[in-house]
Design a protein around this nucleic acid. Structure first.
Lengths: 163, 163
DNA sequence: GGAATATCGTTTCAGTCGCAACGATTGTCA
DNA sequence: TGACAATCGTTGCGACTGAAACGATATTCC
């Protein structure tokens, strides 16, 4: 009975949101409690550790953050001395953002613990199950890729899949 | 080489957040474009369709929304005529919230399309894969359940698993 | 009964967000 | 060259958010 009622707890988008938010909150302790960083700031410095001297637009296209959000995160990071902004050498519209020594130091203090939390989560799954989980998530992305009303995926996340 | 750099796109919490947000944005079109509802409002009316005449606290404990967020969502829904608030019969501190006819009507207009979007997503997976996905997600929850620094799960989401 | 405590829903407050518009710079093309 | 369009990063604005404090009601305990 009652099989026609909408059960929020079994609704996939809700389920994903709950799990994702729970994990995000846990990870945010790692970069938030000790270093006072916010999620956009965390994503920005992580991206900078891979792609040095990039523009705001570049970050925006890679880490799933709106442009103003990146801009403000960079400003806060600059104020904190973790990042420097330099005018673009050729194109003066661009801003070349890069990590400072202090920025690298903060990153070094966060990354191991962040990876440890992730490792504890993944430790609940076998290697095969981890691959299965990622594969299933990619299949869901596949549906969204063909849905004209869904937002497109970020450049870098796609590149990750193709390799 | 470069195996020691932190790759955001492969970081599980990030991966989950990206997928979850992408799906949430897609679903939000269903209840947002035509009916102008926000995510908390959507969760509230869905919960009310299962649990009639409940309090703010009750909703807060069930649908993963902070208490003020529920309170404000209910106020907006009341202003829109989709919900009525009545003083608690016995305990005057409580507020008994329930859907109006108009609220049910809006819900009937949204649910089929929301389920259709979910069905298209799940359609990419076999029955067995759907169960596997849910099971793997539950395993991740299991790790968080034992992590004292993680937030506890909501009452209703847990009940869903035990059955 | 009555003071102290707990719980309920709301509100205040400071901070953040997304959209749109903006000035500044670069590219395009007649 | 010079006007127009495109792109860059930033900011104004209205809306939303979470933590804490609030008044109101209930409960507990002496």
């Amino acid at each position: 009975m009652a099989s026609d009622v909408f059960n929020l707890s079994e609704f996939l988008p809700y389920r994903l949101a709950v799990l994702s938010e729970r994990i995000s909150k846990r990870i945010s302790l790692v970069y938030g409690e000790k270093y006072g960083l916010s999620l956009p700031e965390w994503r920005v410095i992580v991206h900078l550790s891979r792609c040095h001297r990039v523009s705001v637009r570049e970050i925006h296209n890679c880490v799933n953050l709106e442009k103003p959000r990146v801009s403000r995160a960079v400003s806060r990071l600059e104020a904190a001395g973790l990042v420097v902004k330099e005018a673009g050498a050729e194109d003066h519209r661009l801003v070349e953002i890069s990590l400072t020594k202090a920025g690298w130091k903060v990153l070094d203090g966060i990354v191991p613990e962040a990876l440890a939390v992730e490792a504890r989560l993944l430790g609940r799954l076998s290697e095969a199950e981890q691959e299965t989980l990622v594969a299933l998530m990619e299949r869901l992305h596949g549906e969204l890729d063909e849905d004209p009303k869904a937002v497109p995926r970020s450049r870098m996340d796609l590149a990750q899949v193709e390799t």
